[in-house]
Design a protein around this nucleic acid. Structure first.
Lengths: 209, 209
DNA sequence: GTATGTGAACCACTTCACAGCA
DNA sequence: TGCTGTGAAGTGGTTCACATAC
């Protein structure tokens, strides 16, 4: 089934899930696709269609039970468990990622960090001891690490990603400003604030300076 | 013209531009859509079509002069100039953003920072003195700030974005994990590593643990 | 009455394929 | 000959509209 779900749909599910969690926190129990759509600026039809790829979660005439739908979506996404991640590159950016408080509450834990610079290896940052890059392979296997985070300079990105892929990593969160290539079967998502800015200025440039 | 260019196209232009800059650094002078496509894993037809929205930059039988195309794209995107940005929220994340070295080389400069916490206002971080949030409006006007960066907790995001919009900001880079709403005419791009992770685990969950 | 779930219609983006030009 | 630029064809995702169920 999973193979025929459009990737855009998969990318919207976490957005829905986050909103539902928030609604539960506010005490709401039921929601219609209409209401959720207004909240997220998405058409109700799109929400219903998206959900229909995975099952039938609503009650006609009523809407969706928020708690039930949340649990279903978390299971579909695989976020009803925790995931171990390895960070490669502990410069300014990597250090900030290690100290970032937003991952753990969502079940994403950085359990290993690597760098090539001897000035950094051995240091302990955010509770994690920075290891030498050569140890990536065995550490990933030993600690059952599922996801790689890359925060190295652009020039080293491809090499590092190849290393992670060779170590069996199937998902990479890439902070480097470089469109690295991954083989089929490996997912890559880029976090690239500069690209985001550069595509917004297109719309700004005509407005009064 | 700009209005009828699909947004997906606009979002690919910075990727092309970055690759072209890199190619120039490597000494290459001409490239075909075929070759650029291979490099970026994009079809040559897509590159040619994307460029055709803006003009005719190639030479038939030859390809594209890299330097010329780079200049054209930078102009189209509005990245042939510098832009002033204001940061709101100087917690852990905001501080990392202030210290991030990747913006300035691309012409994006954070020239003001704001927070509500009196423990933070007045402090100087990365060369910027943190101001009180109430000063947003006049500072943005006085310093001709074009872009807002939001790094506040989810619960405050909408309020802060409304404030920036009221101050005349037309582009917002949002790091908060919240799908805030902006009026038509204002662009928003979200930097959300958790959403990125949550949409990748969907593909991981079936593979051996 | 109300809101879901879904085939069908629609729309937008991508790819094709070739005319046109260096 | 080689590669661009572009209408036309193809593809995939979104929206419609209604049968269905509560």
């Amino acid at each position: 089934m999973a193979a025929l779900v459009p990737e855009v749909v998969v990318m919207r599910l976490p957005v829905y899930t986050r909103a539902l969690v928030q609604l539960t926190a506010e005490g709401q129990e039921v929601i219609s696709s209409q209401e959720l759509g207004q909240l997220l600026r998405v058409t109700p039809a799109q929400i219903r269609k998206d959900l229909s790829y995975f099952g039938r979660f609503g009650r006609q005439g009523r809407g969706y039970n928020i708690r039930r739908l949340t649990v279903e979506l978390q299971h579909i996404l695989g976020i009803d468990r925790s995931w171990a991640m390895a960070l490669v590159g502990v410069g300014h950016l990597g250090e900030a990622i290690l100290n970032y408080r937003g991952f753990a509450p969502q079940g994403f834990n950085i359990t290993a960090a690597f760098d090539t610079d001897p000035k950094r290896t051995g240091k302990k940052i955010g509770g994690i001891t920075v290891q030498r890059l050569e140890e990536v392979r065995e550490t990933i296997a030993a600690r059952k690490i599922d996801i790689g985070i890359v925060a190295v300079p652009a020039a080293e990105t491809q090499k590092v990603i190849d290393l992670l892929v060779a170590a069996g990593i199937k998902a990479i969160l890439n902070y480097a400003p470089f469109a690295a290539q991954v083989p089929a079967g490996v997912k890559r998502r880029d976090i690239d604030p500069v690209l985001a800015l550069q595509s917004m200025t297109f719309y700004l440039k005509e407005s009064p300076k």
